[in-house]
Write a protein that binds this DNA or RNA. Sequence first.
DNA 1: CATGGACTGGACTGTCCAGTCCAGTCCAGT
DNA 2: ACTGGACTGGACTGGACAGTCCAGTCCATG
Lengths: 196, 196
Amino acid sequence: MPTEPADTRSRLVEAAFAAFAQSGYRASVSRIAARAGVARQTLYNHFPTKEALFSEAVALAVHRVLVSLEGGGDVRETLLRFAAAYRARVLSPQGLAVFRTLVAEAPRFPHCAQQFFREGPAATRKRLATYLAAAMQAGELRSDDPQFAAEMLTAMLADTDRLRRLFGLAPKRAGEARRCARVVDCFLRAYAPERN
Amino acid sequence: MPTEPADTRSRLVEAAFAAFAQSGYRASVSRIAARAGVARQTLYNHFPTKEALFSEAVALAVHRVLVSLEGGGDVRETLLRFAAAYRARVLSPQGLAVFRTLVAEAPRFPHCAQQFFREGPAATRKRLATYLAAAMQAGELRSDDPQFAAEMLTAMLADTDRLRRLFGLAPKRAGEARRCARVVDCFLRAYAPERN
DNA sequence: CATGGACTGGACTGTCCAGTCCAGTCCAGT
DNA sequence: ACTGGACTGGACTGGACAGTCCAGTCCATG
């Protein structure tokens, strides 16, 4: 093989990921090949069709969407860390671009969209729910459905600002930390342990 | 004019709206004309370009996105009515289709996207915030930033299920009313008046 | 040095589409 | 009965793009 360790194939997938994120499925095969620094025919040596390449690019995206959750410290501290990480991931230009493309193409690539959802947002919420369940058990949070609670927290963290950005409005960059704190405190009020 | 009261022009806009919602901007001019029962040239007699037609279709969509909020009864009842109306609008197949198309095309039609956002989600939240502010004044809700509170409530109402549906997962149709009630009650816990 | 596999790049096909042009039809109001 | 404006429908241009074909290059290995 006359090419460097950075596989031609993975360069192609990477280029496809970037191109699809930027331009949606409209991104042309020629441009993707150019972006990867490769002849168009080479692309077709690795992927039979544009669809196949798209699927592969989505698979790459899937590996980049899980948001971590590290315990340690009290509940509020843990949730604050999670909040910052979640918002950073979801509201980043890349996160939004991937979201945009996948939402647009979900009808044409239902399998990709579902895979992304399950291994991204759904998995993240599941982890969060597990943590919340433990905190409920420990009496640090009101005893309730942890899955539902996780859904509420992630919704409050992302929804408004995601919409704003998706529709092209200014990010309100100031006060990211403050925003996290307000949301987490709102959540903690709703899920404070019942008094006696 | 040889045509019926239902203006050729409005038939075209209606057809464009439906086509763009269904297929995104990919929807072809020919198909839109056919859907309106009209020759392609007639379409071009009314709109100079496809872009112009798209803008017009979005303008139509804008008039369909405001969610009503009727006071009357206590706070919980009012919010429950709002919750049901909001979810019905936002999670309907049409609401989701419009969302999908606009999110996808926002980079190409920033003006349309912003207009939609301002007169849709933003306006709805503004109304809700006004109501919440009054309830806070009346001591029925904890005194706090009403705009932020409105953002939290709308986020909790829509985010999770919108994502689920956008990514092609089953709607969990059962228990719509119950879902509304759970969210509203969660909100009311977070915004209960501070005890003394 | 020879061979084979990966890559190159340009030409080509078929398809779809936006937008233009035009000759003709149909009908409402005068 | 005539006229003008709206609509029709089919032909056409030019461009973009997915996918195919192929003759040739480059290089690592044997």
